[in-house]
Design a protein around this nucleic acid. Sequence first.
DNA 1: TACATATTTGAGTGATCGCTCAATAACATT
DNA 2: AATGTTATTGAGCGATCACTCAAATATGTA
Lengths: 219, 219
Amino acid sequence: MTPRSNANDKSGLLQYVLEAMKRAQPYDRETALDAAMTLFWTKGYHATSLKDLEGALNMKPGSIYAAFSSKEALFSAALERYFQQTKEVFRSMHRDTDSPLGALADYLRSIARDADTDPDCQACMLIKTILNATTEDAAIAEQARHYLDQIRDEIATAFDRAIASGELPADIDTNHLARRYQANISALKIEAHRGTGRNELAALADEAAGDVERLRVRQ
Amino acid sequence: MTPRSNANDKSGLLQYVLEAMKRAQPYDRETALDAAMTLFWTKGYHATSLKDLEGALNMKPGSIYAAFSSKEALFSAALERYFQQTKEVFRSMHRDTDSPLGALADYLRSIARDADTDPDCQACMLIKTILNATTEDAAIAEQARHYLDQIRDEIATAFDRAIASGELPADIDTNHLARRYQANISALKIEAHRGTGRNELAALADEAAGDVERLRVRQ
DNA sequence: TACATATTTGAGTGATCGCTCAATAACATT
DNA sequence: AATGTTATTGAGCGATCACTCAAATATGTA
């Protein structure tokens, strides 16, 4: 509430008095959570302060605590949001496909494509959280680990679909394939985060995608 | 300097007076740096406080600043130490080998072996630093990135040696191989950090190692 | 031994941290 | 319109942060 400096000082002072403690528009929970997710994803839990969150959410301390209880609870909610969105993106790329292996390969290529259009692209929030967490906040690391496991199950389900559609032999270990595939996703996202060049990143993604496609049995 | 509570109060009070501001043994710089590296590697830059460092280094604030100038400069020195040690380990595994490809494959397997013996094994400090850094501490991320690039060069040199020894064809792209190899190291170390089971981790490492060995030209 | 120099301590600084709560504004009910 | 209820503000709290600096201790020199 800064006093206005303008030609008409009396009008400015009156305006200043009228605006003191003007209550904001009520916040929108989804909008706030989305902003928190973006901020936490970029800065991590420890380096993100309440003041940062005030700015990003356009909310004051009392409102943030009324809505989300604590910094850690807000982080946890943001992490869940990230997980749900990631799962939904993965699923949407595998809906309506008649080639599960093709879709899995294309998802890897999409990582390089997405990094190409986003200069500040960040590695996976779940991985960052696990690597970043300390023993004092082991709960959020555990939550992130749990979400990563669930995403790996989604991947294994996609490989199972490739078996059902005849692309893979019935005796292949889809859990192992999913684990390897997820490790490749992590690696690609870290390379993107690190600023690896577009051609190099695309080559890595193509190679990983080729590994997936070469699993296809001859028809 | 806590007063001693014991049967002989006069003797305890005298001991308390005699011990006030007793100066410590001078610190050993290498020992302090090693302790700082271990602490920063585990907790990361942001979540590590000066109080943590006091405990780990067994030094008081004034000494820490006299020796290392600032928290950031200490982190930077610890990061360099980590880089030098990592480079030395990699080199020592490639010294005196007549199969560079074999040594590269075995290094990947060693990641799973090392994780098996260390329950609190951490992902690569350089990767953690890059993922953890914010714009306010971009300098340490840049330093870590630079070290990662140098390690990738070491890897490319090992692949060059495989060409020179006849294991690889002369026209293969060793820079690309090195980049992929380093991405695989990152992925394996993250799986280890995440607590992936010993058999699964060993399977991932063996598979990555097998990929390296299959590059070998027929002789 | 006396004095000079170097090193370490740890109390204290100003700033920032996560969070609380009384005051105020906005909304709902009668 | 008056009253009651709900939601938001933001000053301020106690704690912690990175760091400083005068005092004290240890080491070196003449």
